[in-house]
Design a protein around this nucleic acid. Structure first.
Lengths: 235, 235
DNA sequence: TAGTGGTCTAGACCACGGA
DNA sequence: CCGTGGTCTAGACCACTAG
């Protein structure tokens, strides 16, 4: 298992940025200096720097030098993160409560969202997820039995994305989300402990694997005072 | 004005993909073939291909070859669209009503969002935007006077993005949006013609130019029954 | 085994920025 | 002017994939 030298250089610079040894606007050593420091050719140094520029860690000015960028934290957030991961980023403790867990035949709507044949079975799971003990969202998950053969409550109580990636060795690709505002109905108001008619975010989510198959359909309700949705969009 | 050879190679391949001469999954010639075709070194070919891979046009498989990617269309759709453009996509007629139009000194919040010095002037504009005659959103725009020297009501009544790109010749890069659900207050309820406390989407938007400067800060309220927000996210 | 992309070298000339 | 990054060469060896 050899690690290529350009990756070693990349990682070392990345670490320094993360540890704030290199701060926004700082000039890093020139390509010729780095070439000497690491005992590699200039092209290898450039490969490392190119990757860091593409990832937004650095930017270059012809004739001047290479500098540390400041926007990295923001860029990370635009990716697809699970609720657990999102809350970890904010240093908040996640707890999950399973309100129901059953296997049923997919309804027409769910079958359509999950690309299932009629009569195929799905798990239907209701969860209430809290951050630092405060209920933030109530969601209903639909997962194809075909993909999740031996799902248990304890798996769902922890991070589903972690289970999919680490245990099932499946590769999550992208999701389509629809976001709207609705007034809380009786169920939502009960589960989240908020007043009836209080505004909540209703997000439905269809998530797909690398092979193009959808593996989850989720309908979730977020407490407006606890959650906001940040996104980057490029023109 | 010399164009580097790697860019020529890049552009030629990009064109072929756009004209569908190269379709999804097609294997493109090997790096050694391209090297011969264009009479350059292999590193130069790789520079061209690296850029196309980073832009999502191609993907590589070690030992197999380089292939044309298919996700370009999807990537387009997730991009940043103005309200006018979005509504046009859905074949809905947009009308804008200007509720107020003034120049004022930026408040602290607005100055921070627009990277302005204290005391700098901004336009503050309130618009109600309708699709097919139905009010969909009420928004307050803040635009730096420094960038929009001669803004008029009639420009704002049409598409601002169009004016920025076609008239001012500025290049819009990306936006950061924050989306939350709130209950309509008196103002919102009046302008959108909905009941008080009805759930609405509150979206604030900070949009940036290619040079990194923010050019608008917008706070908008969308009618929940008329608008939903769709987005793709990649893992 | 042959062909592919992944990594790497030791040079070179250029254009730009600042002193 | 010198130092910077931008482009480019003509090789090399490696790891992976397929027949």
């Amino acid at each position: 298992m050899r690690i290529p030298s350009y990756q070693l250089i990349e990682n070392e610079i990345k670490e320094k940025i993360k540890k704030s040894e290199l701060k926004h606007g700082t000039k890093i050593p020139s390509e010729n200096d780095l070439k000497e420091t690491y005992g590699v050719s200039r092209m290898t140094v450039r490969q490392a720097l190119n990757n860091l520029v593409n990832d937004g860690y650095l930017y270059r000015h012809k004739g001047k030098g290479t500098f540390v960028n400041h926007t990295k934290m923001e860029k990370r957030i635009q990716g697809l993160l699970s609720f657990t991961e999102e809350m970890q980023l904010m240093n908040r403790m996640v707890t999950n409560k399973i309100a129901s867990f059953q296997v049923m035949k997919a309804t027409e709507e769910v079958a359509a969202k999950l690309f299932l044949g009629s009569g195929e079975e799905v798990y239907r799971i209701e969860r209430i997820r809290s951050a630092d003990g405060v209920p933030v969202l109530y969601e209903t998950l639909y997962l194809p039995k075909r993909i999740f053969k031996d799902l248990t409550e304890s798996i769902v109580k922890n991070s589903l994305y972690n289970y999919i990636e680490k245990e099932l060795k499946l590769s999550i690709n992208f999701s389509i989300q629809s976001i709207e505002a609705v007034n809380a109905n009786q169920t939502v108001s009960n589960y989240l402990g908020i007043a009836l008619d209080y505004a909540v975010l209703h997000i439905t989510l269809n998530t797909f694997l690398d092979n193009g198959h959808p593996f989850e359909y989720v309908s979730s309700y977020y407490r407006a005072d606890q959650y906001r949705f940040i996104q980057h969009a490029f023109r």
